[in-house]
Design a protein around this nucleic acid. Sequence first.
DNA 1: GTTTCACGATACTTTTAATGTTACATGATT
DNA 2: AATCATGTAACATTAAAAGTATCGTGAAAC
Lengths: 143, 143
Amino acid sequence: MRNDSRLSRMLHVLLHMTRHDGPMTSDEIARMLGTNPVVVRRTMAGLRDSGYVRSEKGHGGGWVIAADLKAVTLLDVHRAVGGPYLFTISNGHRDTDCAVEKIVNEALDNVLSEAEAMLIAKLGAISLEELAQRFDEQCNKNI
Amino acid sequence: MRNDSRLSRMLHVLLHMTRHDGPMTSDEIARMLGTNPVVVRRTMAGLRDSGYVRSEKGHGGGWVIAADLKAVTLLDVHRAVGGPYLFTISNGHRDTDCAVEKIVNEALDNVLSEAEAMLIAKLGAISLEELAQRFDEQCNKNI
DNA sequence: GTTTCACGATACTTTTAATGTTACATGATT
DNA sequence: AATCATGTAACATTAAAAGTATCGTGAAAC
């Protein structure tokens, strides 16, 4: 598969939305991300289904944030966009009879599941609010 | 990209080789892995270039282990097969002017590089010798 | 009430890296 | 000389994300 940039892109969008008055259209967002509106709608659909954003049709419509920034973590966003895969590395056939392969699977499973747990913990520990604050701090530095 | 099963497969092969007298041919290995000999040669080529295995042509030829099992870690094997990607998740454009994107990249970089360091440490802490021992222990249980 | 704007959804094509496959060259053993 | 095994090049396939074209639907503006 290609690299998964959905989390990165959605964080980018969400942070912009927190500093933006009124709805942002899929076209605006697509230009911002260097992609196209259909991709934006497809990806944002996951956020909408999780209740993190809302979409409105028609004139003056577009996307708005619909959640408390403190309550949404990077992990929430990752899950909302349906990113199931974290690692490119995979192990062998899970239903093998080969004793050697079982040992290998066991070892790799251990390593990967520990790393996954850590990744999930880290992503779950950062809220959108925190990222927004970091952004503000960065801006104030330049004054 | 698809999932990367090269590390898993090579560990599987290497462990079999430690319990196998004489060279194993690419055909044998391919049948074992459920793939085909060219894939085996292609993947094993990395191990050969790193000096972990040796290959011999002609009658009675094939692949043999050429390294001290204690000295080769799972990380060594991972690197030998040229597995550069660990995560499916990627971050945005590294050369962006957007302050928001920079904050997002920074946050994701932090999380991913910590997880990567952990993965590398874990893989580097397990030697082929250890896996072979685990296999022996497993076998002795069944007696 | 019609036009315009924006999302919703479907149905493709493209991309990327691994994997699969075919074919042929090369060297070693019998 | 024949056979066996690797080495290599070239091309096809696969899986999942991303890109694209098109049409449908609802809401606001005129």
